[in-house]
Simulated assay, not measured.
Amino acid sequence: MEALDSRQIYQNAWMTVREDSIRLPDGSPGIYGVVDKPDYALIMPWDGVRFMLVEQFRYPLGQRRWEFPQGTAPDRADAEPAELAARELREETGLVATRIEQIGLLDCAPGMTSQRGRVFLATGLTQGPPEREHSEQDMRCAWFTRAGFETAIRTGEITDAQSIAAYALLLLRAP
Rank of each mutant, 00 (worst) to 15 (best):
V17F: 00
E88H: 03
R87F: 02
L106T: 01
W143I: 14
R99A: 13
S6D: 01
M52Y: 04
I164A: 08
A122N: 12
M44N: 09
N12W: 03
E133Y: 10
G94R: 04
R140A: 04
A142V: 03
M52L: 10
C108F: 12
A3R: 00
L121P: 01
V34W: 00
A77G: 07
P74E: 09
G117Q: 12
T72W: 03
S163F: 12
E88I: 13
R146N: 09
A161D: 11
R7L: 01
Q127G: 05
E83N: 12
T98V: 02
M139Q: 14
D39F: 06
V49Y: 09
L169A: 08
S21K: 00
T155F: 06
S6T: 00
S163N: 12
L53M: 13
G71S: 11
Y32N: 00
F68V: 08
E101Q: 11
E133T: 08
F120M: 02
S163L: 09
P45N: 07
D138I: 03
L169Y: 12
W14F: 15
L170G: 06
L170M: 12
L95R: 10
I9E: 11
Q137C: 11
T93V: 05
T16S: 10
P129L: 13
L169G: 03
S114T: 15
L171K: 14
T93M: 09
D107Y: 10
L89E: 08
L171W: 05
L171I: 07
S6F: 00
G71H: 06
S114K: 05
F144K: 12
A3S: 01
A86D: 04
L125N: 07
E136A: 13
P45I: 12
L106P: 04
A142C: 07
E88C: 08
A166K: 00
G111C: 07
A86C: 09
F144A: 09
M15L: 15
T126E: 14
D47T: 12
E157Y: 07
R87I: 01
M1C: 02
A165Q: 09
G156L: 06
A166E: 04
E136S: 14
L106R: 08
L4E: 01
T159Q: 09
L84I: 01
R76N: 11
L89F: 02
P69E: 00
E83D: 06
V17E: 05
D160P: 03
R65M: 14
D107F: 11
K37A: 14
P69D: 04
S28L: 08
Y32A: 00
C108Y: 13
G30C: 01
I43W: 13
P175K: 12
C141E: 15
V49F: 02
I153F: 02
S163G: 13
D5Y: 05
E157M: 08
T93H: 04
L61F: 13
L125S: 06
T98C: 01
M52G: 03
G148E: 14
R87L: 07
L106M: 08
T113I: 11
R76H: 10
D39I: 02
R7M: 00
C108D: 06
M52F: 07
L4K: 06
V17L: 07
